[in-house]
Computed example of a mutant assay.
Amino acid sequence: MGKSEEVYASLVRMIEKGELEAGVLVSESGLMERTGFGRTPVREAVQRLARDHMVRIHPSKGIEIPAISVEDQLKRLEVRRVMEVLAVTLACERSTRQEAEVMSALAITLDGHHDLDEYSETVRQTHELITVSARNEYLAEAMAPLQGLSRRFWLTHVLDVRHEIAVGSVHHRQILEAIAARDISKARESSIALNDYLVEFALSVINSRAPRQAARTV
């Protein structure tokens, strides 16, 4: 992994976890200080983040972490749903025996108890393993930002952490088990079920806002 890729991965995690706050402008030098890397890899990483819709660059002003909306999340999920069905199909067909064994082990890990950080990292590993196993770098490059933005939305809005981790773990575990067994039908079904859950979660965010908005209009 090159320096710019390391910076990119580090900044993605900071953005997903809210360590870089939405709506706040940060400077290139500030990101250099936060990551410990020099100007060139930070600049390259920021340019990539901008292409992935994770930051907005305002010349002479700074780098903005954009707010996330339910509407944008639902649009992302429309695309992610189709891509992930393709990814799990290819992973069933192309994964190696070793990758299938790692998936089985990761599925067992998802049965354990996790805090939010541990769960988030396990989900990240799950997505990365599936896309690597699909053996299509174009698909992997298209999926990574969609999944990262979706994770950020989920982490920003999760309220009942224990419940949501339990539900999400079941979906991810079923996907991994199906791919490890090379069961294409089950893998596709489980992938769609995960995306259905994410849509329901996004819609629940709208519903949770409604009482507060109504109260302000009274």
Rank of each mutant, 00 (worst) to 15 (best):
E141H: 10
V46F: 09
M54S: 05
I65G: 00
L31P: 00
Q98I: 12
A107E: 00
R94C: 09
I179M: 07
I68W: 00
L116N: 03
L129A: 08
Q174V: 00
D160M: 06
R97E: 12
K61G: 02
A9Y: 11
R188F: 03
E84L: 14
R76A: 06
A67P: 05
V102R: 13
M1P: 00
A100V: 07
F201I: 00
L20F: 10
G38H: 09
M83F: 13
V218L: 15
M14A: 12
A193S: 15
H157N: 04
A134C: 10
P145G: 04
V85Y: 08
M54H: 01
G18F: 00
Y138W: 15
E164M: 04
L159N: 01
Y197A: 06
P211M: 02
L155C: 00
R34E: 11
L20E: 05
T35N: 05
H58F: 15
G112C: 13
N136T: 07
V26S: 09
E33Q: 14
R152K: 12
R124A: 15
Y119P: 00
A181M: 07
G38N: 04
V12W: 01
H172F: 13
R13M: 03
E177G: 07
A181C: 08
S29I: 14
R135F: 11
E200A: 10
E189C: 12
S185G: 08
L129M: 10
E93I: 10
L176E: 01
G38L: 08
R56W: 13
H157Q: 00
Y8G: 01
A193W: 06
I15G: 00
L11I: 05
E71N: 13
I184M: 08
G18H: 01
L155F: 02
Y197C: 04
L159Y: 01
A181S: 12
T131C: 14
Y119Q: 01
M14Q: 12
L90E: 08
H172E: 10
R162H: 04
H114V: 05
V218H: 09
Y119G: 01
L159K: 07
V82Q: 14
R34V: 09
A214M: 14
T109G: 10
L203N: 14
F37Y: 14
V42G: 06
I108V: 15
L129K: 10
D117A: 12
V167D: 07
S185V: 08
D52F: 08
T122S: 15
K186N: 10
M143A: 11
S191C: 03
S120H: 11
A180R: 10
F201Q: 01
R51E: 15
C92I: 02
L74V: 02
I15S: 03
S60M: 15
A50E: 12
V123W: 06
